[in-house]
Amino acid sequence: MSDQAVLLLRKQLKELSRNPIEGFSAGLIDDSNVFEWEIMIMGPPDTMYEGGFFRANMVFPKDYPNNPPSVRFVSEMWHPNVYNDGKVCISILHSPGDDPLGYEQANERWSPVQTVETIMLSIISMLSSPNDESPANIDAAKQFREDLPGFRKKVSQCVRKSQEM
């Protein structure tokens, strides 16, 4: 299975380098390991994250594409759908099948048809419209709902820090 994963990941990386997608870039952290990628996400225009350059790591399991990669921001991130340790929490990165908590439908979760491109577009979409109903970061979700000016200020600090890195 790992050989299939290696071939698929190399193909997706090659495709992204040939046809870059606006809003992010991707490359290997170490050329000898196709399972660990570094991603640079540009804060989407007309959002609180605009102007930011956020670094993240994407780590693929050996049985990719049967199971999803994990994505973790290395840059500081204040967002309802990003855990304090930087790990991204969106439906398509959750294991395939039925949600044991019953919150998500199976068709919203990971599917082998997903690609690095679809994952990154979902993360950009997450930055554009936070989901505070199913938060990974309860404090960020609470502030987003109850103190939007304070939330904006904290996001602005993250954007500034990302520009300095």
Rank of each mutant, 00 (worst) to 15 (best):
L16P: 01
V113L: 12
E38D: 07
G43W: 06
P20R: 07
E133W: 00
D63Q: 11
S129F: 08
V71I: 11
K62N: 12
S95I: 09
C89E: 04
A106F: 05
L121G: 00
D139Q: 13
S25D: 07
W37C: 02
S75L: 11
S111A: 14
Q12M: 08
L127A: 02
Y83V: 01
A141P: 03
S111C: 11
D139Y: 08
E164Y: 05
S91H: 03
E117G: 05
Q12I: 04
S70V: 12
K87N: 07
V71P: 00
F73L: 09
V82M: 08
F54L: 10
L121K: 11
N57R: 13
Q105I: 05
F60M: 13
R152W: 00
M165R: 14
Y49K: 02
V6W: 08
L127Y: 02
C89R: 04
V71M: 04
M58Q: 05
C158Q: 00
N19P: 02
L93H: 01
F60G: 06
N81M: 06
R10G: 11
H94K: 12
C89A: 05
I123R: 01
Q163V: 06
I39L: 15
S156E: 12
R109E: 04
N57S: 12
R145G: 04
E146K: 09
G51Q: 00
T118P: 02
N137D: 12
E108K: 13
R160S: 11
S122C: 11
I123T: 02
I138L: 10
I124N: 08
D139H: 10
D63I: 14
R152S: 10
E133R: 13
V74K: 15
V6S: 14
L7V: 13
Q143C: 08
I90P: 03
R55M: 11
A106Q: 10
Q143V: 08
Q4S: 15
V71N: 00
E104G: 03
K14P: 09
G27F: 11
F144L: 09
E36F: 09
D139P: 00
L121C: 04
S32W: 08
K62F: 15
V113P: 05
Y83W: 10
N67M: 14
S129D: 14
K62E: 14
S2C: 14
I29V: 15
F53M: 13
A141I: 08
D98E: 15
A140L: 03
N66T: 13
A136K: 04
P100H: 06
R152G: 06
L121S: 02
L127K: 00
M1H: 15
N57A: 12
S162M: 02
